[in-house]
Design a protein around this nucleic acid. Sequence first.
DNA 1: TTGTAGGCGTTATCAA
DNA 2: TTGATAACGCCTACAA
Lengths: 340, 340
Amino acid sequence: MATKRVTPTIRDVAQLAGLSEATVSYVINNGPRSVTPETRAKVLRVMEDLDYHPNASARRLARQRTDTLGIVLAGLTDSNFASSYFLEYIRGISYAAERHERNLMLLTHHHQAQDVTFYSNVRRSRLVDGLLLLGSSIPDQVVVELKARDFPTVLIARRIPGHEVYCVTQNYEESAYQATQHLIARGYKRIGLLGQSQQFNYGVERLAGYRRALAHANIAYDPELVRIPETPRDDPTPQEIATLLRAAPDALLTDREMAVLRTLRELGMRVPEDIALVGLDESESASLLDVPLTTVRPPKFELGVNAVELLLQLIRGEEPESSVIVLPMELMIRSSSPQK
Amino acid sequence: MATKRVTPTIRDVAQLAGLSEATVSYVINNGPRSVTPETRAKVLRVMEDLDYHPNASARRLARQRTDTLGIVLAGLTDSNFASSYFLEYIRGISYAAERHERNLMLLTHHHQAQDVTFYSNVRRSRLVDGLLLLGSSIPDQVVVELKARDFPTVLIARRIPGHEVYCVTQNYEESAYQATQHLIARGYKRIGLLGQSQQFNYGVERLAGYRRALAHANIAYDPELVRIPETPRDDPTPQEIATLLRAAPDALLTDREMAVLRTLRELGMRVPEDIALVGLDESESASLLDVPLTTVRPPKFELGVNAVELLLQLIRGEEPESSVIVLPMELMIRSSSPQK
DNA sequence: TTGTAGGCGTTATCAA
DNA sequence: TTGATAACGCCTACAA
């Protein structure tokens, strides 16, 4: 009969080293007990010889934790705009997770209809120690409930109005303010805004920043120049845009620059000759276009990194200084908003 | 003294239901033993009452498998072109994984210098049941070794010349053939190719398809019209492109359409007036440009789905019909290659 | 049809 | 400093 077990266990290491499993364990984990250098060396050598690696599942069971963070990718079903961000968030997340020796689990639900069931499963099955939530399509209620259950959770790039959940977000208000001010400084008088539903904090904050800049420059707020959808949507519809254009704006702010650009072209309007365009939420392609777009650059990588740091605090049971981390966005001035 | 345990265990369920742990287990797993409907109902009710969820780590340990697939994202460090594909692969992967009730683990190495250590760890620690490998920057040697160790592994969108590893790839040869033929049919005579290093199978296959189309049309192969880098690179350099242009091509094939387009513009050449352009590896933006690009569309989502199916076969210990699955790519004819 | 008990690999506790 | 052993929570062969 050949070898009974394919992979060596801690027991094999202990036997070959002539030591107890406990001692081997202390070598593996550098504690909590100390081991003499000789013993340690012997254990390490045997481990090397056997190509031994601790069984992750057994560790998790014994330690009562997984050292794994869950990344929830919501709204991946529809290949929508937002998802193009995900990879950048994930870059930041995985960078930070690696630093802290944490694993990452990808959680999606294409099929699962029941949100509640899904999150309850994740939470109770102890699959992960905490959750990072990406994408706006996770229902507020779910986020609030996770918080209520004290399950370590961090929201990325948005917050939930009226609820103090942990989140890492961006300075939507200030960046909209700066973008608007930039246009004003360049001589634009009638600046239009294609905003987002006021159900989302970024919809609210961007509108506020826009209005603050106008007020600061003593420009009257003209509702005709602003289009806010009743319900959340991705891209502004051509109708929406056409309606706004009837108010004769000389510049346009939008978080969906690519879609707006396309529609403008279909309508025969050139950027920036006929109208200036500033993106509030840079898509990767914005800088590659014939007319590179002036956009606000969201710090996606950094968002991911900060979210991990915050989540690890929560998992350790620490109370973070603030439940919200706000990172600055940078205005990248390109060719779509020239001096008028 | 309050409740000792925060989360209920299978033992709690068994006790409350007045049954044994075994019976509860059989209910949870629908087998391998049958349970009377009444018993089952009782168990399910208690589970519901306690909000019981099986502990994933304990299951994994007992079952000696994780029901988890690892997604290796290589080359995520450099925010290179290739990574923009990853999310589409992942969409397909997560879609299929969900169907089969498998979890997904994200594996990256930003810091880890030692490839071998990394993969050895993954393999031996039994963190995942198998691996999906994305991105060209995973060394061939690593892939070959995983195969040699019989660790279930599937390569996505590429194969390794000279080694029969499991992979789901695309019809690079045929699509390059079609793209070239399309240009020939539209009247182009001097078709240039900005290829990829012959170290990669897609570099080799695309060149072959290109030559086959030329031969088919009785057009002599002109090395002056072809630029293949010695070593792998992402975007063709402006020098490379300039050199090729000296051979006076009237059309250009490339797998880096966005970069080439940019350089052409910088050189003052217009598409398609001065030169036609066909992309061999559609980037998301290709269709959004002023001149929507004719490109070959890789079936990224489907690649992900097929990779999961293949990997699950390997994990089950089945021998797949073929070690390679080749999916067709579709030529999307747009405006950058008009009739000449 | 159901209960019992041993095992999975690691870690913590208690002795030595 | 090290060893023995009992959890950890679940699964399943074997008994009943």
